[in-house]
Structures are given as C-alpha cells and as structure tokens.
C-alpha cells in the first residue's frame, strides 16, 4: 500500500477532492496522452510498467473502449481490453471502478445521456461476467458533455463515443 499512500498524499497536495469523486484519477483516458496536466498526474498514478499501478490499468491495459455510431455493442477488441481490466480488478480488490459512458456531439442532449448510460452498462455487464463483483462497479453517463477530442468530424467523434473505466480506491463507490 505504500504506492497507494503516496498517491493519496499527492492527490491531497494537488487539491484533488477526496472519495466519491469519479474523477479522482484524472477522468480516465483524459490524461493518458500526457498533456500539461497529464504529466503531473502520471507521476501520482505510478509507473505504467508496474502491473500493480493505476497507470498500468489506465495505459497498459487501457481504460477506454470505443463504440460505433449510436451503438453500445462491444467489439472483439473492446472485449480484449475489458478482459484485461477485469483480470486486473480481480487481482486488485482494493480498487473499485466507476464506468463513464460518453457520446459524440451528433445527438440531442438527453438521448446522449441515455446512450452513454447504455455504453457504460455494457462495460459493467462484461466486467461482472468476468468475475468482478457488482458491488465494486458503478456507472455514470456524461452524454456529450465531456468530449475527449473537440473537432467536429468523425476522427474526433470516434474518440468521443467511449466508455472509460475509472478506478477508485475501495470503499469510495
């Protein structure tokens, strides 16, 4: 737990609010690309080569799966990623997760919330089928409110139609 203690310490020092915050590890894939803020967070997340670190979960396994337009079906590639996520969660019971569902901007606001919820639930169901306890998983939909990529064409939309598994410290869900 030394590493975890360090994470919490750093998170506290950075003013990241405490438990119940689904964004506590930096909104999942949002910091994976290593932007200005991403550099700071990945120090706190540990080494992506350390299989016990959140960074390993986020970056090496991959915390994000993508969806086709208006779909919530998991592709074979997505299932591989999620199988890795489930295995990691099964090996690290001290973590829970919030699965965030997102949609691209090509839809009305409320429908997109419902669509994002479908995507998050598809991931949740897959993780449960792989042995993760339902009690460790929650879902939230952001609809089109939190795009990852901000252009208005398919290159960005494809990145925004996603579900991100955001791991949190146990007991916080």
């Amino acid at each position: 737990m030394n590493k975890l203690s360090m994470i919490l310490l750093l998170a506290g020092a950075l003013g990241v609010s405490a438990c119940n915050n689904p964004d506590r590890f930096g909104a999942g894939g949002a910091d994976g690309a290593g932007g200005a803020g991403g550099g700071i967070m990945s120090a706190a997340l540990g080494d992506p080569n350390d299989p016990n670190s959140p960074a390993y979960f986020n970056q090496t396994i991959g915390d994000t799966v993508r969806f086709a337009v208006d779909q919530s079906v998991l592709t074979p590639e997505s299932q591989n990623v999620l199988a890795g996520q489930a295995q990691w969660m099964n090996q690290h019971p001290q973590y829970n997760a919030v699965v965030e569902g997102h949609a691209d901007e090509q839809g009305t606001r409320e429908y997109n919330i419902a669509l994002g919820a479908r995507r998050a639930a598809a991931v949740q169901e897959f993780l449960i089928a792989q042995g993760v306890s339902p009690a460790r998983l929650r879902t939230v939909s952001y609809g089109k409110e939190r795009p990852l990529a901000i252009c208005s064409d398919e290159a960005c939309y494809a990145q925004n139609r996603r579900a991100v598994t955001v791991i949190t410290v146990g007991g916080g869900v």
Binding site: E110, A114, A117, A121, Q124, E125, T139, S141
Partner: peptide
C-alpha cells in the same frame, strides 16, 4: 422524468 437502470432508460 427519465430514470436509468442497468443501461435502460
């Protein structure tokens, strides 16, 4: 209003 449960709204 709408309620979401298990992916269904």
């Amino acid at each position: 209003y709408s309620v979401e449960q298990g992916g269904n709204t």
